[in-house]
Nucleic acid binder design. Structure first.
Lengths: 209, 209
DNA sequence: GCAGGCTGGTGACCACAGTCACCAATCTAC
DNA sequence: GTAGATTGGTGACTGTGGTCACCAGCCTGC
């Protein structure tokens, strides 16, 4: 399927015409429904996804326990795919679409070339590494300092900002999974937060006050 | 002080003559004693260090508690400095020389240029981002899964590999600080590891069996 | 209607790490 | 020498989060 260059340009305005042309002739665009697996641990990477629309969740798993690392939003990319693609090593993380998404798939064998030739794409990846590095640092700090209530509250704040919703329709079970803890713990802590007046649990979902 | 280009080349063989010449005319080399602060949280970065010899410790601090993130060894660099330098944002981490070290200091205002012009230096930073990303992923997994004994044992293994010593002369207090825990906990866990036959505590230090 | 899922609310219990308060053995300074 | 600091070893206690068991309120399908 030949790609429409102007379609890509809508999302990636920083890219030069030359780069866009290269991408249009080698990449594909793919619509992916929510809940689809993009990348799993141990997998080798042939195409590098850039999220044009939607949301992709990245997480790690360790002996049945998982932990949300970060979300990939619009015009962002997955540095694990990038680094795994470049160095031809397997992925260490999982990625799943959280919403219906539109992905631009770049073939990794072209990437090495493009990175050298087009500063814009190079900058994109430096920015992404940067962003993820600091996000992971925050994750480490919050894990180290423990304090479930802080972690949960921050998690809800982030989630609310990301989705642009004031009332989050989230199952306790899902929160527990993403935070790498147990459902009962979420229930307990959420009630404590409610008593402290930081959140309200309504039938429709959780409201941050 | 004019730099000796061949001196730098000894360490960074992948760099082209042209890049080495650029570096020689703009960078400095600095000998730093053990225990010197290279970078602290909140600091803005003017020079990017590349470690030629020695060892630099990178860690985060959170309310009096610190946690070792990783070590920067020979021909490696500090991506926090790199990213903070490029985007002119403050550092999120601390860095201290662990041994007497020889550092190559690159001015960050040249960096942006060099990265675009010289693929070798670009590759170096991608490699470093990669490496640190996976190291931080391991840190997150070990924090998430808890298990102090595993963490401590892995810490000792890493340390032993890094220093190339079979017997580690380390204070319990220092181990505790680097792992973000308390001294008594280290003493306790270390004794358990000794009972399990995984380590031996000799007067000279800790031996991994 | 009712069975069988989910969901969340709860109490009891446990394990682990963090904290406190000591103490004994070394080492260091003067 | 002695005083003081550093190091490590220990017992007791605590708080937090993880686990277990169970129950009530639902929705959904048939």
């Amino acid at each position: 399927m030949p790609l429409d260059q102007s379609e890509i340009k809508k999302y990636l305005q920083d890219f030069s015409e030359e780069l866009l042309a290269e991408i249009a002739s080698h990449a594909q665009i793919k619509e992916v429904p929510a809940g689809a697996e993009i990348l799993r641990e141990g997998q080798y990477v042939k195409v590098l996804p850039i999220v044009l629309e939607g949301l992709v969740k990245v997480f790690t798993r360790y002996e049945e326990k998982e932990l949300l690392l970060y979300y990939i939003g619009s015009t962002q990319s997955c540095i694990m795919s990038f680094s795994a693609g470049l160095s031809n090593s397997p992925s260490r993380i999982f990625a799943i679409t959280e919403e219906d998404s539109l992905l631009l798939l770049l073939p990794t064998d072209k990437l090495n070339n493009w990175v050298k030739k087009f500063p814009a794409i190079n900058d994109l990846f430096y920015q992404q590494y940067n962003l993820r590095y600091t996000e992971m640092l925050d994750t480490i700090n919050s894990l180290l300092f423990g304090r479930m209530d802080h972690r949960l509250y921050n998690y809800l704040l982030e989630k609310s900002k990301l989705k642009g919703e004031k009332i989050l329709s989230l199952r306790h079970k899902k929160i527990a999974a993403e935070m790498g803890t147990a459902r009962e713990v979420v229930t307990r802590v959420l009630k404590r937060l409610e008593q402290e007046g930081k959140v309200r649990q309504l039938p429709e979902g959780i409201e941050i006050t």
